[in-house]
Simulated scan of single mutants.
Amino acid sequence: MTERSEFGAAFEAFRGLSYPDYPRTEELRDWNSFLLELDGHIAGYASRVHDGRLGAREVPELDSLVLEVASLRRDLEEIHPEHDEDAGLVTEYRVYTTALERLVQELASLARHEGEPPKR
């Protein structure tokens, strides 16, 4: 697969997910606020790159976004909610965050390869 098709597959997989419900516990709500911010930022740029309105290399601070999503995913592993409803949400958030992480990694990979001469 090319970088563009891998990015496209990651984008479509991410776009096919629903955002998880709002959590009840304060710790998970705080975590969710960071996810919402990153989600909107990354999804907005990714959709513009996917539609061809923006080059991946034009996404500002892309390497920082990759690190922030990885950190957010690690932080989620430290959350152990007491309510069954939020425990189920943690699983949904794991799936969602994994898809977001894949999307931003593929976006970064695409950015690294933009402007390189085609392989022969």
Rank of each mutant, 00 (worst) to 15 (best):
A56M: 06
A56I: 00
R57L: 09
R57Q: 10
R57T: 10
R57P: 01
E58S: 11
E58M: 07
E58Q: 11
E58T: 06
E58W: 07
E58Y: 08
V59M: 03
V59S: 05
V59H: 06
V59N: 06
V59R: 03
V59A: 06
P60S: 01
P60H: 05
P60T: 00
P60M: 01
P60E: 08
P60R: 03
E61L: 09
E61G: 11
E61R: 13
L62Q: 02
L62P: 02
L62N: 05
D63G: 12
D63A: 14
D63M: 08
D63W: 03
L65A: 08
L65R: 06
L65G: 02
L65N: 02
V66N: 02
V66I: 02
V66E: 08
V66Y: 04
V66H: 04
V66G: 01
V66R: 05
L67S: 15
L67I: 08
L67N: 09
L67K: 12
E68M: 11
E68Q: 13
V69R: 02
V69Y: 05
V69Q: 02
V69L: 04
V69A: 04
V69M: 06
A70K: 08
A70Q: 12
A70I: 03
A70M: 07
A70S: 12
A70H: 08
A70T: 07
S71G: 12
S71L: 15
S71P: 04
S71V: 11
S71C: 06
L72K: 02
L72Y: 01
L72E: 01
L72P: 01
R73G: 03
R73H: 08
R73P: 05
R73L: 07
R73W: 01
R74M: 09
R74F: 12
R74H: 11
R74K: 11
R74D: 15
D75I: 11
D75P: 01
L76Q: 04
L76S: 05
L76Y: 04
L76W: 04
E77S: 09
E78L: 15
I79F: 09
I79N: 01
I79E: 01
H80K: 13
H80G: 07
H80L: 14
H80Y: 13
P81S: 00
P81M: 05
P81V: 06
P81D: 00
P81A: 05
E82Y: 08
E82I: 09
E82V: 12
E82N: 10
E82M: 08
H83D: 14
H83Y: 14
H83E: 14
H83R: 13
D84F: 13
D84G: 10
D84E: 15
E85N: 08
E85L: 13
E85G: 09
D86L: 10
A87K: 12
G88C: 05
G88A: 11
G88N: 12
G88K: 12
G88Y: 15
L89M: 06
L89F: 10
L89G: 02
V90L: 02
V90S: 03
V90C: 05
T91N: 11
T91I: 13
T91L: 15
T91S: 14
T91A: 14
E92V: 04
E92I: 00
E92Y: 14
Y93L: 06
Y93V: 05
Y93N: 03
R94F: 02
R94Q: 12
R94W: 05
R94D: 07
V95A: 12
V95W: 15
Y96N: 07
Y96R: 10
Y96Q: 07
T98G: 12
T98K: 15
A99Q: 13
A99F: 04
A99I: 03
